[in-house]
Amino acid sequence: MSTAEHLAAIDLLRAREFPVVHGRSERGSQGPGYHIAELLTSDPFWDDDGTRWEATEDQYEAERDGLAVLLADRWGPPQTFSLQSLFERVVDTDFGDLADGGADEEIPEPWAQLSASVPDLHLWRVEGRWIALGVSQWDKEQPFQLLAVVTETDPP
Protein backbone atom coordinates (compact mmCIF):
# COMPACT_ATOMS: atom_id res chain seq x y z
CA MET A 1 0.00 0.00 0.00
CA SER A 2 1.13 3.52 -0.72
CA THR A 3 1.07 6.41 1.72
CA ALA A 4 -2.05 7.76 0.01
CA GLU A 5 -3.72 4.38 0.52
CA HIS A 6 -2.72 4.40 4.21
CA LEU A 7 -4.28 7.84 4.66
CA ALA A 8 -7.43 6.72 2.82
CA ALA A 9 -7.68 3.64 5.08
CA ILE A 10 -7.41 5.81 8.20
CA ASP A 11 -10.07 8.19 6.85
CA LEU A 12 -12.34 5.25 6.09
CA LEU A 13 -11.93 3.87 9.62
CA ARG A 14 -12.66 7.28 11.11
CA ALA A 15 -15.93 7.52 9.17
CA ARG A 16 -17.05 3.92 9.75
CA GLU A 17 -19.43 2.88 12.52
CA PHE A 18 -18.06 0.50 15.14
CA PRO A 19 -19.38 -3.07 15.08
CA VAL A 20 -21.32 -4.59 17.97
CA VAL A 21 -19.17 -7.75 18.15
CA HIS A 22 -15.46 -8.55 17.97
CA GLY A 23 -14.18 -10.02 14.71
CA ARG A 24 -12.07 -9.64 11.60
CA SER A 25 -12.56 -6.96 8.99
CA GLU A 26 -11.17 -6.67 5.47
CA ARG A 27 -8.19 -4.76 6.92
CA GLY A 28 -7.65 -6.26 10.37
CA SER A 29 -9.72 -6.62 13.52
CA GLN A 30 -12.61 -4.71 15.01
CA GLY A 31 -15.01 -4.72 17.88
CA PRO A 32 -17.30 -2.53 19.92
CA GLY A 33 -15.65 0.88 19.96
CA TYR A 34 -12.60 0.17 17.78
CA HIS A 35 -11.09 -0.66 14.39
CA ILE A 36 -7.51 -1.89 13.86
CA ALA A 37 -6.15 -1.81 10.31
CA GLU A 38 -3.07 -3.77 9.27
CA LEU A 39 -1.59 -1.30 6.79
CA LEU A 40 1.62 -3.25 6.04
CA THR A 41 2.81 -6.74 6.95
CA SER A 42 6.37 -7.99 6.47
CA ASP A 43 7.53 -11.50 5.75
CA PRO A 44 8.25 -13.70 8.79
CA PHE A 45 11.82 -14.17 10.04
CA TRP A 46 12.15 -17.94 10.45
CA ASP A 47 15.61 -18.22 8.85
CA ASP A 48 16.99 -14.78 9.61
CA ASP A 49 20.31 -14.13 11.35
CA GLY A 50 18.96 -10.84 12.70
CA THR A 51 20.15 -8.63 9.85
CA ARG A 52 16.88 -8.63 7.91
CA TRP A 53 14.91 -8.32 11.18
CA GLU A 54 16.75 -5.10 12.18
CA ALA A 55 16.38 -3.59 8.70
CA THR A 56 12.67 -4.41 8.65
CA GLU A 57 12.15 -2.95 12.12
CA ASP A 58 13.84 0.28 10.98
CA GLN A 59 11.75 0.33 7.80
CA TYR A 60 8.44 -0.12 9.64
CA GLU A 61 9.30 2.53 12.23
CA ALA A 62 10.23 4.91 9.40
CA GLU A 63 6.90 4.14 7.67
CA ARG A 64 5.06 4.90 10.93
CA ASP A 65 7.01 8.10 11.51
CA GLY A 66 6.50 9.31 7.92
CA LEU A 67 2.77 8.70 8.15
CA ALA A 68 2.73 10.45 11.54
CA VAL A 69 4.26 13.57 9.94
CA LEU A 70 1.41 13.70 7.43
CA LEU A 71 -1.20 13.19 10.13
CA ALA A 72 0.49 15.84 12.28
CA ASP A 73 -0.12 18.30 9.43
CA ARG A 74 -3.84 17.57 9.89
CA TRP A 75 -4.16 17.29 13.65
CA GLY A 76 -0.98 18.61 15.26
CA PRO A 77 1.86 16.66 16.83
CA PRO A 78 0.96 13.25 18.27
CA GLN A 79 1.34 12.12 21.83
CA THR A 80 3.69 9.19 22.29
CA PHE A 81 1.93 6.58 24.39
CA SER A 82 3.92 3.66 25.82
CA LEU A 83 2.07 0.37 26.18
CA GLN A 84 4.77 -1.38 28.24
CA SER A 85 3.17 -0.84 31.65
CA LEU A 86 -0.22 -1.71 30.18
CA PHE A 87 1.20 -5.03 28.93
CA GLU A 88 2.44 -5.77 32.43
CA ARG A 89 -1.03 -5.00 33.81
CA VAL A 90 -2.63 -7.32 31.22
CA VAL A 91 -0.22 -10.14 32.17
CA ASP A 92 -0.99 -9.59 35.86
CA THR A 93 -4.71 -9.69 35.09
CA ASP A 94 -4.48 -12.82 32.93
CA PHE A 95 -2.19 -14.82 35.18
CA GLY A 96 -2.69 -13.21 38.57
CA ASP A 97 -0.10 -11.80 40.88
CA LEU A 98 0.91 -14.42 43.40
CA ALA A 99 1.52 -11.78 46.08
CA ASP A 100 -2.03 -10.42 46.06
CA GLY A 101 -3.97 -13.45 44.84
CA GLY A 102 -4.58 -12.09 41.36
CA ALA A 103 -5.42 -8.79 39.77
CA ASP A 104 -8.99 -7.77 39.01
CA GLU A 105 -8.36 -4.96 36.52
CA GLU A 106 -10.01 -5.32 33.14
CA ILE A 107 -8.11 -3.62 30.31
CA PRO A 108 -10.51 -2.49 27.57
CA GLU A 109 -10.06 -3.27 23.90
CA PRO A 110 -8.32 -2.34 21.73
CA TRP A 111 -5.71 -1.45 24.36
CA ALA A 112 -5.30 -4.98 25.78
CA GLN A 113 -4.81 -6.46 22.28
CA LEU A 114 -2.36 -3.73 21.25
CA SER A 115 -0.28 -3.99 24.42
CA ALA A 116 0.63 -7.60 23.59
CA SER A 117 2.62 -6.64 20.48
CA VAL A 118 3.01 -2.85 20.17
CA PRO A 119 5.55 -1.16 22.48
CA ASP A 120 4.32 2.39 21.83
CA LEU A 121 1.88 4.40 19.75
CA HIS A 122 1.67 7.80 18.12
CA LEU A 123 -1.70 9.04 19.31
CA TRP A 124 -4.12 11.85 18.39
CA ARG A 125 -7.54 12.80 19.75
CA VAL A 126 -9.75 13.95 16.87
CA GLU A 127 -13.50 14.62 16.93
CA GLY A 128 -14.15 12.36 19.91
CA ARG A 129 -12.05 9.45 18.67
CA TRP A 130 -8.48 8.34 19.25
CA ILE A 131 -6.34 7.68 16.18
CA ALA A 132 -3.11 5.76 16.72
CA LEU A 133 -0.21 4.41 14.68
CA GLY A 134 2.06 1.65 15.89
CA VAL A 135 4.43 -1.09 14.81
CA SER A 136 3.46 -4.55 15.97
CA GLN A 137 5.48 -7.73 16.27
CA TRP A 138 4.30 -10.70 18.30
CA ASP A 139 7.65 -12.54 18.45
CA LYS A 140 11.13 -12.45 16.86
CA GLU A 141 10.15 -14.88 14.09
CA GLN A 142 6.79 -13.24 13.38
CA PRO A 143 6.23 -10.46 10.82
CA PHE A 144 6.14 -6.78 11.62
CA GLN A 145 2.89 -4.92 11.01
CA LEU A 146 2.19 -1.22 10.63
CA LEU A 147 -1.12 -0.68 12.43
CA ALA A 148 -3.64 2.15 12.37
CA VAL A 149 -6.19 2.24 15.17
CA VAL A 150 -9.39 4.23 15.53
CA THR A 151 -11.24 3.94 18.83
CA GLU A 152 -13.67 5.80 21.01
CA THR A 153 -12.25 4.08 24.10
CA ASP A 154 -9.87 6.25 26.13
CA PRO A 155 -6.42 4.80 26.82
CA PRO A 156 -6.26 3.27 30.30
Rank of each mutant, 00 (worst) to 15 (best):
S25T: 15
S25H: 04
S25E: 03
S25G: 07
E26A: 15
E26M: 13
E26S: 15
E26Y: 09
R27F: 04
G28W: 04
S29W: 11
S29K: 12
S29E: 14
S29D: 09
Q30N: 10
P32M: 08
P32I: 05
G33T: 07
G33V: 02
G33K: 10
G33F: 06
G33S: 08
G33Q: 08
Y34D: 05
I36F: 08
A37L: 10
A37I: 09
E38K: 07
E38L: 08
L39Y: 04
L40T: 05
L40F: 01
L40E: 15
T41N: 05
T41K: 15
T41I: 14
T41G: 03
S42I: 06
S42T: 02
D43K: 14
D43S: 13
D43A: 15
D43C: 00
P44V: 09
P44S: 11
P44A: 06
P44N: 06
P44E: 05
F45G: 03
F45D: 08
W46C: 00
W46Q: 01
D48Q: 04
D48E: 11
G50S: 08
G50I: 11
R52L: 12
R52E: 09
R52F: 00
W53C: 02
W53S: 02
W53H: 14
A55K: 08
A55P: 01
A55N: 03
A55D: 05
T56K: 08
T56P: 04
E57P: 00
E57Y: 02
D58T: 04
D58E: 14
D58L: 01
Q59G: 00
Y60D: 01
E61G: 00
A62G: 04
A62L: 11
A62H: 04
E63A: 12
R64W: 00
R64H: 01
R64D: 00
R64A: 07
D65A: 14
D65N: 15
G66D: 12
G66H: 03
L67R: 04
A68H: 00
V69L: 14
L70Q: 15
L70M: 08
L71V: 01
A72I: 04
A72K: 01
A72F: 03
R74A: 10
R74S: 12
R74C: 14
W75V: 03
W75L: 05
G76M: 11
G76A: 06
P77F: 10
P77S: 15
P77G: 10
P78V: 13
Q79T: 10
Q79Y: 02
Q79G: 01
T80D: 10
T80R: 15
F81T: 12
S82D: 15
S82I: 04
L83K: 06
Q84N: 06
S85C: 05
S85H: 14
S85L: 13
L86M: 11
L86H: 07
F87G: 03
E88H: 07
R89F: 00
R89D: 12
R89I: 04
V90N: 05
V90G: 02
V91Y: 06
V91Q: 13
V91E: 13
V91I: 14
D92R: 15
D92T: 10
T93N: 12
T93R: 13
D94Q: 15
F95T: 03
G96M: 14
G96W: 08
G96D: 08
G96Y: 07
D97S: 15
